[in-house]
Amino acid sequence: MSLHATTILFRRRLHMSRLGQMALMVLFWLAGEALTRATHLPVPGGVLGLGLMLALLFSGRLSVASTRRGAQFFLGELLLFFVPAVLAVTDHPELMGWVGIKIAAVILVGTVTVMAVTALVVEFCCRWSMDRVQPRMA
């Protein structure tokens, strides 16, 4: 079989295989990790991997069909990867009690403020740019 035919066959297989696509994303992540270690960039390896994958998607060397199923799995089960991180509270007994309540208050008030400010800024930017493009009827 020629090399060209082999690549076509490989691509067709990859379009069908969720596991293959997941492995591809792990490879991109590992490449990103290796790159951050080598260059001492202050960016997580996953982010460099994301950039790498975006570049290949935009250049047309990688088709969305050979990534979509794998991405669906990782994004659909995103919360699973955070579960072990929460258990870190058991390693910090100082968070039990008063300090923990204070922290929860900071997070709660901060989060609600951030959400309100962000949404209002975007909303007013939207209205402003709409008004400029098509002035509202008086």
Partner: peptide
Amino acid sequence: YIGGTRWLLMLMGPATVAFAVPIYE
């Protein structure tokens, strides 16, 4: 606990890569 489940935390790496797909779409 964390010694046995660190690999799950590490999957956040490829999950970050996966965001390339919705961004591109």
